[in-house]
Amino acid sequence: MNMNGKNPDTPLSGPGTLLLLVAMLFVLLHPAAVLSNEFILLYSNDNRGETEPCG
């Protein structure tokens, strides 16, 4: 045990560190979802019974 109360011999591993790494990776690979108000409107009107040409 050193003056900071930490054991310098403890390796940088264990379940806590692993969880932190996974969380960091998740954040890096999944950027925050951007709120979007963009869309495409497709519209039609007055088909008037048309299905297809005669031939």
């Binding site: 979007s36 963009e38 869309f39 495409i40 497709l42 519209y43 039609s44 007055d46 008037r48 019974g49």
Partner: peptide
């Protein structure tokens, strides 16, 4: 319609204003 849906990552809203069925 499918082509527009596939070519863009934006959502598509599809509407018809009427006069659809008969002359």
């Amino acid at each position: 319609i499918e082509q527009v849906r596939n070519e863009s990552d934006k959502p598509v809203l599809l509407l018809d204003a009427g006069g659809l069925l008969f002359e």
